[in-house]
Amino acid sequence: MTNFVLVAGAWLGSWAWSDVLPGLRAAGHTAHPLTLSGLADRQGVRAGQQTHVDDIVGHVERLDLRDVVLVGHSYAGIPVGQAAERIGDRLARAVFVDSSVPADGESFVSGWPEGRAQVEAAIAANDGFWPALTAADYAGQELGDEETARIVAGATPHPGATLTEPAVLRGSLGELSATYVKCLLDGPEPGPDVAALLKGERWDLVTMETGHWPMFSRPDELARVLLDAAGAGR
């Protein structure tokens, strides 16, 4: 039995995985959607990037989970990549869903050379939080009106320090057994950092013909992708 630990990206909480969970559980596995500090039902909790890493590691260790598939979507790839390194032999595989990946000493906004100033200005203007997106920002991502309304209603401002603080890695991400899921409506190719990792023997690439939020646009297909990735880790 695989233990899936699912972490959604910026502005989202555990609720974002609700349509993916049935597919994982019907296959006989355990799924643990996780809300990071400062978001959704955990609003008001102060958080930096290492807080989010600790959230994930602490959840795995507190429940004594083994055969863990850590899943990080979008921003969450950064704390998931660091947590995957820290949980050691508890990890079966890491899955990065259209996500950023951590680089030692670099932050989430480090990878945004054109948008970094904009993100930092938005955080400064909103009491240290990155404001959630509006409905118009989800256009072109294969989301219907109902799905878009769910995301907008559930999204909460994202703690800014988690985006600007640097990642801490002890080794190379290329040493992880990992799957990268590229959502093609959000861009046809992974970024250069991910492309370099995919050249190694331990990383696999899977593509989905959907937008950046596949847990809403194609939850059943995403569940199948995650199950396949878990099988690759055995």
Rank of each mutant, 00 (worst) to 15 (best):
V5K: 02
L6F: 10
A8F: 08
A10D: 00
W11T: 15
W11C: 11
G13R: 02
W15H: 14
A16S: 15
A16N: 10
V20R: 04
P22Y: 14
P22W: 15
R25S: 09
T30L: 11
T30D: 15
P33Y: 02
S37G: 12
D41P: 03
A47P: 02
H52Y: 08
V53M: 09
D54A: 15
V57G: 11
G58D: 01
G58W: 09
E61R: 13
L65E: 08
L70D: 04
G72C: 03
Y75C: 05
A76F: 01
A76L: 03
G77K: 05
R90K: 06
R90P: 01
A92C: 06
V95A: 03
V95T: 03
V97C: 03
D104W: 07
E106L: 12
E106H: 11
S107Q: 06
V109F: 03
G115E: 10
A117L: 08
A117H: 05
E120H: 00
E120N: 02
A122F: 06
A122R: 14
I123M: 07
A124M: 07
N126L: 05
G128K: 12
F129S: 11
W130Q: 13
P131H: 14
A136E: 15
A136C: 02
E142L: 14
T148D: 00
A149L: 05
A153W: 06
G154T: 05
A155Y: 02
T156D: 12
T156A: 11
G160A: 05
A161G: 05
V168Q: 14
R170Q: 13
G174H: 00
L176P: 04
S177T: 15
T179R: 05
L184Y: 07
L185W: 14
D186H: 11
P188Q: 09
P188Y: 11
P188I: 13
E189D: 11
P192D: 07
P192L: 09
A195N: 08
A195G: 03
L197P: 00
L205F: 09
T207G: 07
G211V: 13
R218F: 10
A223R: 09
D228F: 08
G231D: 13
